[in-house]
Computed example of a mutant assay.
Amino acid sequence: MFTAQSPLADRDRDDGQAYRERRAVRAGGGAGRPAPLPAPLPATLAGRIRFEVRVTIRLLADNSSAAVVPPVLFTAAVGLRQGLAAADLARHVAAAAVLFLLFLYVFDTANQAAGAAEDALNKPYRPIPSGLITREGVLTRLSIALPLYTLAGLLTETIGWVLLWQTVSLGLNLLSNPRHYVVVKPVAMVLGTLAQLAAAWELVTPLDGEGWRWVLVVTAACNLPMCFEDVRDMAGDRRIGRRTLPLMLGHWPVRIWFALNMAALPATLHVLLFSHGHAGQAVVLGCDALVAVPAWTAGARSLLRREARADRVTYLLFTGIYAVILSCAFALL
């Protein structure tokens, strides 16, 4: 994909030098004895591709379970609803995978370019704090991903949702004041979930009444408890002056709010969404149970397991609930 003449090649040569220098300092060879340097970045195309795969995995590791897998599942469910043949269904699912990888890549490059100081404390394995690449390298990748994402939106006829998400990602991460984060982030996440689910549906067919019901109910239900995400990042947010609900109110009100939402989630989805499908009562109750088990587990964990590592696991469980809800579309649409 990338050659020695690509924009990333020169950038990563600098990135690699910065990485080697930081590694040398960390290794500390002792007085008068230089520390060994890692091997230079590979010059071959295969080596460049492997390097980009490594960078991409670290960029997207935290959010892929929420931003890629669930909407791809939703596209597949909508395709089955529309009776697509196996080949057409596979084509739509592949298009969804590409679209939502770019969806996440654009957001995470913008987010990590702006949040290196926070990541150094909360997520030191990410590309910038780990020394793998520099902030400028991340911004270069963002500048390449944006037109690719736009092209994907044009080819899949989801360009409106793509442009909305690009605006949200750049506005939240690169333009907004950290002190306004407590107001800006919830709006951004609602718009992002809306854009994601609407695009996932419209990859297959235009949104109809049933489609809008799924998009709006799931968007609301999954964003109301979203503030729990900031509980796990309190130390880093405090470090960069970001205002979040856990820092303003304390972690207990946010935990209680999250637990109440998790307790009510199965009933909310049953009344507003699941019971409006075409499936029988047994299938609907089965979907209720599939949501209830992880939701109630996450709610209990948020109150009983309050150390930072446990909060990260609880949040991952919450993102898994999003995937479970959209997986229910296979049975209910």
Rank of each mutant, 00 (worst) to 15 (best):
L89Y: 13
A90D: 15
A90K: 13
R91L: 08
H92R: 15
V93A: 13
V93H: 08
A94H: 10
A94Y: 12
A95N: 15
A95L: 09
A95E: 12
A96V: 09
A96F: 10
A96Y: 07
A97C: 14
A97K: 13
V98R: 07
V98W: 02
L99H: 11
L99C: 10
L99Y: 06
F100V: 06
F100L: 08
L101H: 10
L101G: 10
L101Q: 13
L102Y: 06
F103M: 03
L104Y: 00
L104K: 01
Y105L: 11
Y105H: 12
Y105M: 12
V106D: 00
V106W: 01
F107D: 00
D108P: 00
D108S: 03
D108W: 01
T109N: 14
T109E: 12
T109R: 06
A110V: 00
N111F: 00
Q112R: 09
A113Q: 07
A114H: 00
G115R: 02
G115P: 01
A116N: 09
A117E: 15
A117W: 10
A117D: 15
A117R: 14
E118C: 05
E118A: 10
E118K: 14
E118V: 02
D119P: 07
D119S: 05
A120Q: 11
L121V: 12
L121Q: 10
K123L: 05
P124T: 14
P124N: 11
P124S: 15
P124L: 13
P124A: 13
Y125N: 14
Y125P: 11
R126T: 07
P127Y: 04
P127T: 08
P127E: 08
P127F: 06
P129C: 11
P129L: 07
S130M: 12
G131S: 06
L132P: 01
L132V: 03
R135A: 05
R135D: 04
E136W: 04
G137F: 03
V138G: 11
V138W: 03
V138N: 08
L139W: 11
L139A: 13
T140N: 08
R141P: 09
R141Y: 09
L142S: 02
L142H: 04
L142W: 02
S143M: 11
S143R: 12
I144A: 08
I144H: 00
I144F: 02
A145I: 03
L146N: 01
P147R: 06
P147Q: 06
L148V: 06
L148F: 02
L148D: 05
T150F: 14
T150I: 15
L151V: 05
L151Q: 04
A152R: 02
A152N: 04
A152L: 01
L155C: 13
L155N: 04
T156E: 07
E157S: 15
T158L: 14
T158P: 13
T158Q: 14
I159R: 08
G160E: 07
W161A: 13
W161F: 11
V162F: 09
W165H: 15
W165N: 15
V168F: 03
V168S: 03
V168G: 01
V168E: 00
V168T: 10
L170F: 03
L170C: 04
